[in-house]
Structures are given as C-alpha cells and as structure tokens.
C-alpha cells in the first residue's frame, strides 16, 4: 500500500467519525437548546436537575431511550418498520460530507455538492412515508399522506430559489459559492442586489421552505401531537423514536449550514477580519436559534393554510424571482 492510499483511508475514517460525532452532538445539544429556549420564552426554568444548568440532560435522555424496549406492534410490517428509523438518519449525515465548514475543513469538495444535498433530502421524504405506512396505524397513515403533500409543495419553491441563486453564482460547488462572497457583508449573496434585487425575499422563502422541509413548527404536520398522537412516530418506541429526532435535528443543521453557505457568506467575516470556522458556526447556530424561536412563537397552521401558502404565494414569488434573475443577468 502506498503512502497516498493510507493517507486517503485515514482521512476517510477520520471524516466519517467526525461527521457522525458532529451529527450526534448537534442532535443531543439542540434538544437541550430547544428546551432551554422554550422555557426561557415561557418564563420557566427548563431542565436544571442533571448536571450544572441541566447540561447533562441529553446524556440522560440518550440513556433513557436506549434502555427502553423496542416494541413491535402486532400488525406492523416488520422489515419496513425497522428500516424506517435507520434509513431516515443516513441521508442527512451523508449531506454533511460535502459541506465546507471552513477554507480547508471539508470532507469531499464535490462539484455538484448543492445538488447532492437536495437529492439526499428527497430520500428522507420517501423513507418517512414508508415508516408511516408500515406502522399499520391510522394516525401514521394520515401523517404519511401529509408528508407527501407538504414536501412536494415546498420542494418546488425551494428548488426554484436555489436555481435562481445558482444562475447568479454559476456553480453547484459549495466551496466556490462561498469563495465568491469573500470580503465584507455587502458581498454576501443575501445583499447582492446588483444581480437580483429580490435576494432578501429569496432568503426569506428559503428559510420558510427550510422550516417546512424539516417538518418544524409551525409546519409540523408530520407530528401534530394535538391531532395525530405523534404522527408517523406513533408506533415507535425507545431508540427507534430517538433516531427520528436525531434525523430531524441533523436536517435542521444541514439546512442552516446551507443557508449560511448560500446566503450568509459561509466562513467569511462580516467585516473582512479573521475568516474561519468560528464565523461559520456562529452564523449556523444563530439560524438554529431562529428556527427554535419560530417554533415557540407561532401556533401550528392548518393543513390547508400550509398548502395555500406554498402554492399561492411562495411558488409564484419564487418563479418571479427566477425570471427577474434571468432578466438581470441578460441585461447587465
């Protein structure tokens, strides 16, 4: 074995361990962030018992989930039921592979990275629906039907927005997209009004679609605990249930990373000082806090409201944005 191959294998293994660790850490501590922030917004104290300020709460949660029995209800379709939680975690973790966290910290600088993330995101819709159908439960089936309607409706504006962004960046490579935004915050895609005056609107549409695609409140029709018990997750217990939540939080992280890269200049500093990993993480976690903030501020919408928002407002806006970008590119 040559030196290069060994280095490649070691690099591969290190990134694999790093990705899974990063995903697990985020899943664990975003739940704590969610609970702390919710309690802060509702004038409560949240988890305080386990560790200082409740910092060990995620560990306790994990131990609890792992020690619970994995129940298999009688009428369940066993292979698909068991495959659901496993397959739902894999795509978001794979998405992390192509995300450039800083100038040098990227597992695989893939030319079509942006496209890859959306392709793998599409798989998780399918898997969530399979899990719902395999559960042999009315609530799960209704939730599965909702997932399809919701994810198809919001995938269209999301892809159209990203398409108009790609038209102005000329690249699917996330590293290149960040590189183009070097300098101060006025170089960020969010404020590149020269190529498209509607850029801030595009960011807003992206953010709404991010909430809907990762099934977060106010669009959490998949879970909707006041209507559907726990939606798709109703029949799952123990770590099977836990895996769905890990997937949800990793999806949020991937979505926020993508927003940081596409609109907020990635690892570049707003004032052109000290670019690096820390700026990426600050922007990414600020967006995560915003996602949680939205969840605890707005009530769940009705399902028709959800679909109307997408088909009647977001899609026409996204298409107008696409057209405007094309016109601006042609004129200037």
């Amino acid at each position: 074995m040559t030196e290069g191959m060994v280095m490649n294998l070691v690099r591969l293994l290190l990134y694999l361990v790093g990705m899974i660790g990063f995903a697990a850490f985020n899943a664990a501590y975003l739940t704590l962030l969610e609970r702390k922030q919710a309690s802060w917004m509702q004038l409560r104290r949240g988890p305080t018992e386990v560790g200082p300020w409740g910092l060990l709460q995620p560990v306790a949660d994990g131990v609890k989930l792992m020690s619970k029995q994995l129940l298999l209800p009688r009428d369940v379709d066993v292979p698909l039921f068991l495959l659901g939680p496993i397959m739902v975690v894999v795509p978001p973790i794979l998405c992390l592979v192509t995300i450039p966290f800083s100038e040098t910290l990227v597992a695989r600088n893939f030319n079509l990275g942006l496209l890859m993330i959306f392709a793998f995101g599409a798989i998780s819709t399918f898997v969530l629906m399979l899990a719902g159908l395999a559960s042999a439960n009315k609530f799960s089936s209704i939730a599965a039907a909702r997932i399809v309607a919701q994810n198809i409706a919001y995938e269209i504006p999301l892809l159209v927005i990203v398409l108009s962004l790609v038209m102005s960046t000329h690249s699917f490579n996330l590293h290149t997209i960040v590189d183009q935004q070097a300098g101060g915050f006025w170089h960020w895609n969010l404020l590149r009004l020269g190529t498209n005056p509607l850029m801030p609107v595009a960011f807003l549409i992206y953010f709404i679609c991010l909430l809907a695609e990762s099934n977060r409140a106010p669009f959490d029709m998949v879970e909707a605990e006041s209507e559907l018990v726990a939606g798709v997750f109703t029949e799952y217990s123990g770590m099977g249930f836990g895996l769905f939540f890990i997937a949800e939080y990793v999806n949020i992280v991937v979505g926020c990373c993508l927003a940081t890269i596409l609109f907020l200049g990635g690892w570049h500093c707003p004032f052109g000082l000290l670019p690096g990993l820390h700026w990426f993480l600050i922007k990414m976690y600020a967006l995560c806090v915003m996602v949680v903030w939205v969840r605890w501020s707005f009530p769940r919408t009705q399902f028709y409201g959800l679909l109307n928002l997408s088909w009647k407002i977001l899609i026409p806006l996204a298409l107008a944005n696409l057209l405007l970008t094309a016109v601006m590119l042609k004129l200037f």
Binding site: A119, A122, I123, T125, F126, V148, I152, E155
Partner: peptide, 9 residues
C-alpha cells in the same frame, strides 16, 4: 426517488 416513487406511493 424524490418525486416518482413518492407519487406512486
């Protein structure tokens, strides 16, 4: 997978 299979399902 993201569109055709989902719609068939």
């Amino acid at each position: 997978i993201g569109a055709v299979c989902v719609v068939i399902m």
